[in-house]
Amino acid sequence: MSFIRISDVAKQFTTPDGGTIPVVRPLSLDIEEGEFVVFVGPSGCGKTTVMRMVGGLETPTSGEIYLKDKLVEGPSRDKGMVFQSYSSFPWLTVLGNIRFGLKYRSDISAAEKEKIARHYLDLVGLTPFADYTINRISGGMRQRVAIARTLAANPLVLLMDEPFGALDALSRERLQLQLMDLRRAERKTVIFVTHDVDEAVLLADRIVVFSKRPARILADIPVSATLPEKRGLDILDHSDFRKIRRDVLALIRNEERSMEAAE
């Protein structure tokens, strides 16, 4: 069985007056260990819901999700999450936040924990800011803290919900490149949700394009089949990059047009 198996998973939300809104149509998806999968789709389409179900933060209405042959039944340390909004704890320092990622690990000693925390602090380039409080660092740094904290917990899969969505263009670019470096060093399985198609093509091994709500999979594009694994910003001019980007955009545009037609 594949590393992550999403099997006939559907999700409905219940409205306060007892009605139901289908958010995700029954869909199946297999993700291999070490893959970097990016979910794209029109905004509000349910791609984040699919990811949150993998993380155990939402329960599927039907179907099952397996992570390494184990049924996902709720959030756990196996499924690390990085949110769009800044989720670093303001009452802790930069290093304190990263240490928090290790707080509930009983498999390693305190000395080992400190070593790991400092390792990830260094990996995201925040060693000079170790003792800063969260409100004194920039948004880009805060997301680096959140990523380091999540990696320190050593999850099986890293789930990222538009982590760079709130950043300015330059910080976003820098973090995208850093994430690619981190990922090459760590070999983590990643599910990354974004509505930025350039970001998707830049980062992904595989892009999964979702339809408008209720979500279904429109296309599953193997990016690493055509683009080199090690990518820099120069890839933006690569003809294959532009082709994939065009295809993905066309799919999403088509969906958004049919959404407007439906209204």
Partner: peptide, 23 residues
Amino acid sequence: VPKEFIETGRTLGASDSSLMKDV
């Protein structure tokens, strides 16, 4: 308290009681 703080705690392995105490 923002939902993200609670969910961060959960995905880092906090139990209900540690979640209430530490987060």
